[in-house]
């Protein structure tokens, strides 16, 4: 298990993390979401020893991460970084060696990974001569080349074209299947939804939601009932107890049900207005979940009042 436990971090008066915690099981992929400045990068940098937590710790296999354990983590920083004038092959070999591989194994691994990520022909070129997309591949190869036990990747998909995204996703899934826990942050929620076994959403330094994508979807707050009743008078649903109208336009109604409210009662009320052409629970997308949980509480309350008014 890779465990992030109760991380706190302040820069001066600015409290960046206020008790961030989540766990990632070996062989699973964890999508780390949150708006800009929520603290994702700080959390990952604490794991890599690049920032120090005021409180809390990150553990791998039950032991707090130390320098030796970090050597077995593949890391991709948010700000990409490679030696611009160093050749691709030599650079990968160097990083493999820094992670503790001997010279021969490092050279082999560098060759293998540059080949697998489609960089075979660029091995002898300095990194600065490569396109941005290819530099990104080298960056990923640098994270994977030492056969890490854990992968921590900060925004690995940003700046990639769709083909690059697929190649990276495939590489990550492969690592996962080999039993490596993978944590990555991303703003591309569709991607997170597609790839991740579990998701954590960070807002204002706190984890506001964690769980599998399924679990998050089942959360009441994220679920809406869509009922289409063409002949109904406006405000037909407001009278049903436990129902809050999210939106209503020409009979196309989105409803949110309070806990314990029976959806069949809503159906009965709908039928009383006439024809019902559509009645279904709509699964919230991760984007909607994200908006829901990340929104500022004050703003959110204002929105609710507006809708109710």
């Amino acid at each position: 298990m890779l465990e992030f436990d109760g991380l706190h971090k302040s820069y001066g008066d600015n409290r960046v993390l206020e008790g961030v915690g989540f766990t990632v099981a070996p062989g699973s992929m964890f999508g780390f979401c949150g708006s800009n400045g929520a603290g994702k990068t700080t959390t990952m940098r604490i794991a890599m020893g690049l920032a120090r937590a005021d409180a809390g710790e990150v553990r791998w296999r039950g032991r707090p991460l130390d320098e030796e354990a970090r050597r077995r983590i593949g890391y991709m920083p948010e700000e990409r970084g490679l030696y611009p004038k160093m050749r691709v092959g030599e650079q990968l070999t160097y990083f493999a060696r820094l992670h503790g591989m001997d010279a021969a194994a490092a050279a082999r691994a560098a060759e293998e990974w540059s080949g697998r990520l489609g960089l075979a022909e660029r091995r002898g070129d300095p990194v600065e001569k490569l396109s941005l997309g290819n530099q990104q591949r080298v960056q990923l190869a640098a994270a994977l080349v030492s056969r890490p036990e854990v992968l921590i990747l900060d925004e690995p998909f940003s700046g990639l074209d769709p083909v690059g995204v697929d190649a990276l996703a495939e590489a990550l899934l492969e690592q996962c299947r080999a039993g490596v826990p993978v944590v990555f942050s991303s703003h591309q929620l569709d991607l997170v939804e597609r790839l991740c076994d579990s998701v954590g959403i960070l807002a204002r330094g706190r984890m506001v939601a964690t769980g599998t994508v399924e679990e998050l979807r089942r959360r009441e707050s994220g679920r809406v009932l869509r009922v289409v009743v063409p002949d109904a008078a406006p405000g037909w649903a407001a009278a049903v107890p436990g129902v809050r109208v999210v939106s209503e336009r020409a009979g196309d109604t989105l409803l949110e049900l309070a806990g314990g409210t029976d959806d069949q009662q809503v159906l009965a009320a709908a039928l009383r207005t006439g024809r019902v052409t559509h009645f279904a629970w709509r699964e919230a997308t991760l984007v909607e979940l994200f908006r829901e949980v990340v929104a500022d509480p004050v703003q959110q309350a204002a929105v609710r009042e507006e809708v109710a008014a």
Binding site: G100, E149, A178, V180
Partner: peptide
């Protein structure tokens, strides 16, 4: 369970030597 690890712990001396080696070969 996890990927086979082919890495071994590095001492400070080894790390310093690795860095020094890179400096020399690139310079």
């Amino acid at each position: 369970m996890s990927a086979p690890s082919s890495t071994s712990p590095l001492s400070s001396g080894q790390l310093v030597r690795l860095v020094a080696g890179r400096e020399i070969s690139s310079r």
